[in-house]
Design a binder for these strands. Structure first.
Length: 417
DNA sequence: TCTGGGGTCCTAGGACCC
DNA sequence: TCTGGGGTCCTAGGACCC
């Protein structure tokens, strides 16, 4: 049976979330900023039309924002995550097989459905909009790469009303379409690969699809070969129906201010480690190794960019804050140097295992004695935190423009007018 | 003044083994 | 003096995704 997939992609997701809770923003250009209010990570169509670029540092577009009445938001992941769950649940009703690909994208399997798929996906699009306020577009094709491409078309050309099936095109029309798609706009072809291909004269999707296999293999390896096969309509990137087990957990942040004391950096990393430990707990995992890193700003003109990191292997999987947090401080002690202003840092937990029997009492930590931990304190929420998590808080991100967490914090519910 | 965070997969090269 | 080759496992780094 020929496979048939749809990719449902939310339009300007973060910006649309802000708008869903503030209808006055209809027609207003919206920009959402990254964690530290650093750069642009989402733009409404109006903001795109004003020339706001993806990834642009906020300070470079502040004047433009002021002059054009652009609404600015700090990112509000609690809100976006919750909205995503609602959207994904609705999409899940349209097929028995769904892959939630990212916070704002989902593939579903439509193989063997003898109905008008464009009409069917039109219904989905309307329902998501009605129930959540989030606009989506749908691309349909035989493979993931083709569905992605179809989705671009659905987004770009108004006449399709947000739903496009690439298989509805005749062969020659399909070729004309592929010819106007830049090779760098194919899913999986990033900036580096794009440059390599263009140097070889492979400029668009049609040329890529028709290129010699050996050329693709030697230029991009097996990854490129797979993309080419998918463009030809042969599915080789399967739907992932269940989330694959995590292989690593990263918790890192740019600090709100450059940090210049061990204690401040230690506070930051201990708090970040706490977040990582919480993620371990959600999936009932332990880790057999950990990496701690700190770095200076790559943009600073006052000091050279440096990046210090240290890894440690554990004899048994660790999963508790009591076991992990002290090790973070000990590793940091080994890499911290007084003369630098640190601007970012984090921890990476790897070699994850399912937790199994708790062995925390007998944990052996590669030559590092586990200290019993300093006195504990209760946080405002009532759970016990370590002394290292208290401090100046200068590491915390700036989030000057965050909208209320309408859906996840009682105190921030939308008022009834 | 001010430049995100969290992931995955692939490959090359080193260490080690027989 | 002559100094293999194939397999596996691990890690670091590159590239990509949203």
């Amino acid at each position: 049976m020929a496979s048939k997939l749809a990719l449902i992609d939310c339009n300007n997701f973060y910006a649309s979330c802000e708008r869903a809770f503030n209808p006055k923003l209809e027609g207003t250009p919206i920009v959402v900023l990254s964690n530290n209010d650093g750069c642009v990570i989402a733009r409404s169509n109006e903001a795109k039309a004003l020339g706001v670029l993806m990834g642009e540092p906020y300070f470079k577009m502040r004047e433009l924002a002021k002059a054009n009445g652009i609404a600015i938001y700090s990112s509000n992941y609690a809100l976006y995550g919750d909205m995503s769950n609602r959207v994904m649940r609705i999409i899940g009703h349209y097929s028995p097989e769904q892959e939630v690909y990212s916070i704002d994208e989902s593939f579903i399997d439509l193989s063997g459905m003898s109905i008008d798929l464009v009409e069917y996906m039109g219904k989905l699009k309307k329902q998501v909009r009605l129930w959540t306020g989030i606009p989506v577009c749908v691309g349909i094709g035989r493979t993931k790469v083709l569905a992605k491409l179809a989705n671009r078309v659905a987004k770009k050309y108004k006449k399709f009303n947000g739903v496009f099936d690439i298989d509805e095109l005749s062969k020659s029309r399909c070729n004309s379409l592929l010819k106007i798609v830049d090779v760098g706009d194919i899913w999986g072809i990033g900036a580096k690969s794009k440059d390599k291909l263009k140097r070889l004269g492979v400029n668009n999707a049609l040329a890529f699809r028709g290129a010699e296999k050996s050329l693709i293999k030697s230029t991009l390896g097996v990854v490129g070969l797979r993309i080419q096969q998918e463009l030809l309509g042969e599915s080789c990137i399967p739907l992932e129906l269940q989330r694959p087990a995590k292989k690593q957990i990263v918790s890192s942040r740019s600090f709100g201010k450059p940090l210049v004391s061990f204690d401040e950096v230690n506070q930051a990393l201990t708090c970040l480690a706490r977040k990582a430990v919480n993620k371990l707990a959600v999936d009932s995992l332990g880790c057999l190794s950990m990496n701690v890193f700190i770095e200076t700003s790559p943009f600073s003109k006052k000091q050279a960019y440096v990046n210090f990191s240290k890894s440690i292997q554990f004899a048994n999987p660790l999963h508790s804050d009591r076991a992990i947090l002290p090790v973070v401080s000990q590793l940091l002690r080994k890499i911290y140097q007084d003369q630098y202003q640190f601007y970012k840092g984090g921890i990476v937990l790897t070699r994850l295992t399912s937790k199994g029997v708790s062995r925390d009492l007998f944990e052996v930590v590669d030559g590092l004695a586990l200290t019993a931990g300093k006195a504990s304190h209760k946080s405002l929420l009532g759970h016990v935190i370590s002394a290292n998590e208290l401090g100046t808080n200068r590491w915390l991100s700036n989030a000057e423009y965050r909208s209320p967490r309408y859906t996840t914090q009682w105190q921030e519910l939308l008022p009834v007018e």
